[in-house]
């Protein structure tokens, strides 16, 4: 099998890699955003729970999480944990939520209580102040950080082949096993991973940094 044929095969895994990464990324946003606001404005007990959640998902290696949920938890709850796509997105998504919650929390701190106070001074409720004043700014403020988080997800999605997701990595390993070529399939996959991470991560970083500067979001 020559390199081009290998590439053609490995390309079949790109969809899975992208799907897992993007789904996890959005799980990360939709879970991470509320967590970050609850962590800052919520009750003491909410803060403790969120801290525990973040410590767990950030502290345990991703490989351990994947194997634990797929083989361990999946033993007792085959539905839904024996579905490889579910478990891959569950683990990557929640770990990303833990990361993103910290990114967003940094943004809330960076933007400052003053914006919240100014919103409240107009008669907006706390929820509306968060919705109309804090949230849009938090998202812009966080965009450069989200770029790195997206790159991390693309790369870390490669672990998911171990529980059976047929992604770029899975094809590379199969080709290695079938052809005994230990070099080309990995180089090709490395190239594909760079192609998938670099442009989008750079774009988010540049766009976010420029927007932050334009709006004067950095605190002086």
């Amino acid at each position: 099998m020559d390199a081009l044929q290998q590439l053609a095969l490995i390309l079949n895994g790109v969809t899975s890699t992208i799907t897992v990464s993007i789904v996890s990324f959005f799980i990360g946003i939709f879970v991470g955003l509320p967590l970050s606001f609850l962590r800052v404005y919520g009750t003491k007990s909410a803060q403790i729970l969120i801290d525990a959640f973040e410590k767990f998902f950030r502290g345990v290696p991703e490989l351990v999480l994947l194997l634990m949920f797929y083989f361990g938890v999946g033993l007792y709850f085959p539905f839904p944990f024996k579905n490889v796509f579910f478990t891959a997105n569950f683990v990557l998504g929640l770990r990303s939520a833990a990361n993103q919650s910290q990114i967003f929390r940094g943004a809330i701190r960076g933007i400052g209580d003053e914006q919240m106070m100014a919103a409240m001074s107009l008669g907006l409720s706390k929820v509306k102040s968060v919705l109309y004043v804090m949230l849009p700014q938090v998202i812009i403020y966080s965009t450069p950080g989200l770029g790195s988080e997206y790159a991390l997800l693309i790369k870390d999605s490669s672990y998911a082949y171990l529980i059976g997701v047929v992604d770029i990595m899975a094809y590379a390993v199969w080709i290695r096993k079938a052809t005994m070529d230990t070099f080309t399939p990995y180089v090709i996959s490395a190239f594909l991973y760079i192609l998938l991470t670099f442009p989008i991560a750079t774009f988010l970083d540049r766009w976010g940094s420029r927007k932050k500067k334009q709006l004067g979001l950095e605190r002086r």
Binding site: E114, I140, L215
Partner: peptide, 9 residues
């Protein structure tokens, strides 16, 4: 406010 605090966005 003294430091104005307009909404940046």
């Amino acid at each position: 406010f003294q430091h104005i605090y307009l909404f940046h966005h």
